[in-house]
Amino acid sequence: MFNLILTLALFIFSLSVALFLYRVVKGPSAPDRIIAMDTIGINLIAMMAILSILLKTYAFFEVILLFGILSFIGTIAFSKFIERGILVEYDRDR
């Protein structure tokens, strides 16, 4: 029963990732695409957590943390790019 619920949750998460992929391709504006990509990352983290419950292992915990860090930095980089147009400034106080 428990395994059935977890498998169903994995299926619903993959459906959600597919819908967000549609939004990444179709999205009318750039912020839509960025938020869709950030949410795909969060859905992948949740899928990894469910997978580690299903397989009864601790091995995916580092992967989850690292994926959270990479997703966070990617979202910040994209947001800064659409706000400023450049990523790394030489001197901010000029």
Binding site: I69, I73, K80, V88, D91, R92
Partner: peptide, 25 residues
């Protein structure tokens, strides 16, 4: 799981975050 490659990449991630939030100087 772990090792030199992903450790160095994590260090680079942290410094990249500093580059994004502050400036090069």
């Amino acid at each position: 799981p772990g090792g030199g490659f992903i450790g160095g990449l994590g260090f680079a991630c942290a410094i990249t975050l500093l580059f994004l939030a502050f400036d090069i100087k």
